[in-house]
Design a protein around this nucleic acid. Structure first.
Lengths: 344, 344
DNA sequence: CCCTCCTTTTAGATCGATCTAAAAGCTTTC
DNA sequence: GAAAGCTTTTAGATCGATCTAAAAGGAGGG
């Protein structure tokens, strides 16, 4: 019986090496699949690993090798399915690369973001993918670059000197406006909410420009409550200006779902005498009645892109910054109709 | 000017110690907030840390101290908002405890679960919270205990010897059945889908028993497609048996949302001549019309409970296994009405 | 002034891997 | 048969913290 200490629970590389009659160094080479080691030796070491139930100690390896095989991901909010899908895409790619995701929630607060970013550094992540919290300073990102922390911005961007993965929100807004305009709508409202960040500006600007390009007035921008539950009862806000809209484009599908309910409550027929367009095209869009016409931003794909950007950045830290911006797609369903009698 | 190497990017504890004119050991004590060190010394060290921009190296610490301040979380699927909310609750509590979440997705596949569990062990997580994938063997859990990996089962349970956090699904089903029965419904269908696991059985059994207790027939269990998008068009399946139901209870809100659409498409009036009850009470339940009556299982709370169980388990590895089962709550909205003319 | 006791600080070993530089084996060539 | 050139293996230092056991410093008592 080979001497086995019952005291130390952890089987180390040294134990494996001894059992296989090689040195620690050779065993280490086997693990890392180095071509240096002979076939017969490799087999013997692998056999020993199996017999002893050896588990690789990433922590010890990282200390020496300065790679943790760990990626930090910071999102503002997990309960919003949109971010959950983004995360899902990131996780899939990172996992396939043999790495692991360390997750944190910033609550869209810069102080929290500071804290979790520090914690990620303490844990020695190889890089970080994050949706910058609203109000993040450009200075903050540059600080991180200076610390040599590989970084990717997702969904929102603060600095051009850092990789970015997102969707072409402005083009998406154009698609929405064009669709409604082609149905004859002229008075189109835009319903927004949430914190102010780059994606917010892009969407609003995209709306403004698209309206302007069609010679329409883009003044009807209405702010909705941030709490999902309060949106339905805020639908009346759309009709408090001098001009009465016949259609509304929503900043995202959370608003669209809420307004769909609220407008129905007001006695309007969405897709009939009033038109509604969502943004993001979440899974629920297809499951409500009338089915929601929505501009798809494919968050899973954005997540995958962000993860790939980070992996590339890890292999080449000095490459110039890149932006991967996916095209949006208008999914026409039932919530828009041709303009008829003014709504009411 | 104190000698500072520009070569090594990382500031270590030794650098801090030198700058503060103390030993490495003392600096280490300061970090860990040990009461042993004098007030004046502590201040000097903290000052030095600030000046040098010191970042704690968790990886090095873990190697020696055998604690990684890291918790593994394995969920079957991130794109389902239900699991995203669970994760959100877990993350909040783990974060508050100064630890960090390592996330993985099992896709509800046992082989993937094997893989990610191994990877978590390699990364030296202090413990793991997971929703056992459908088909997980009891043996698998016991293997993990034997390896001294602190473990918590969430939502689903395989073994009584491992901590568990979930909701009382059976009681929730009773609430749903009782509500419908009190409205006069006698022929109630149950719509299910998804993989088979403990939560699945509990919900079905809960339904059966509640129906039986009321002297009603529980034979109308209908299997729905797993893909969300296909559920609406499968609504007709409810009416293919000999007995025509006047109400349906859904396994979860994904099905409920889908059937709400599908039943409407079939010309039924949900909340009028047909009643529908969901399960889980996701955010969307309040935002569709008619508002969905649903049994709330509060996934965020379950997540928080799971995380607290794990933290307790870490402080006392030998305590007997615990189960924290939260009560469900019926949220009555608009999707159920009294039985009138048989539906159709 | 020495001894004890208590508080504060420290040197050096240690965790489990990787890395470097060199040694050991094995062919091949002259 | 020695030199040169490969391939394969290895000893020992190293990463940056923690831990142990003991030393240093200071207060109080006899």
């Amino acid at each position: 019986m080979p001497s086995e200490d019952r005291k130390k629970s952890r089987v180390t590389l040294l134990d494996v090496a001894r059992r296989a009659n090689v040195s620690r160094a050779t065993a280490s080479l086997v693990i890392r699949k180095s071509p240096l080691v002979g076939a017969e030796t490799r087999a013997r070491v692998e056999e020993a690993m199996r017999e002893l139930g050896y588990v690789y100690n990433m922590g010890a390896a990282r200390l020496r090798a300065e790679r943790s095989h760990t990626v930090g991901v910071i999102v503002p909010n997990l309960t919003n399915p949109f971010f959950a899908e983004l995360l899902s895409g990131i996780e899939a790619v990172i996992d396939a690369a043999g790495m692991v995701v360390i997750l944190a929630n910033s609550g869209d607060l810069v102080e929290r973001q500071d804290t979790v970013m520090r914690r990620m550094r303490e844990h020695g992540v190889d890089g970080v993918i994050f949706c910058p919290a609203a109000g993040t300073e450009r200075q903050f990102l540059h600080q991180l670059i200076e610390w040599h922390l590989p970084l990717v911005q997702a969904l929102r961007h603060i600095s051009d000197e850092v990789d970015y993965a997102g969707a072409d929100y402005a083009a998406g807004m154009r698609q929405a406006v064009d669709h409604l305009a082609s149905l004859g709508h002229k008075s189109i409202a835009f319903a927004v909410h949430g914190p102010i960040h780059s994606a917010y500006h892009e969407r609003i600007e995209g709306f403004r420009e698209a309206m302007h390009a069609r010679g329409l007035d883009s003044g009807l921008i209405v702010r909705m409550p941030n709490q999902t539950a309060q949106i339905p009862s805020a639908a009346h806000l759309l009709f408090e200006g001098v001009e009465r809209p016949t259609a509304v484009i929503c900043f995202n599908d959370v608003i669209a779902l809420g307004l769909n309910a609220g407008l129905t409550d007001l006695g309007l027929k969405v897709g009939g005498n009033f038109s509604l367009i969502g943004f993001d095209d979440v899974a629920e869009a297809d499951v409500i009645r009338p089915r929601l016409t929505s501009v798809s931003t494919a968050p899973v794909t954005i997540g995958e892109n962000a993860a790939r950007l980070l992996l590339d950045r890890l292999t080449d830290p000095l490459a110039p910054p890149r932006r991967v911006v996916t095209e949006t797609q208008l999914h026409i369903r039932q919530s828009c109709g041709p303009i008829a009698v003014p709504a009411g």
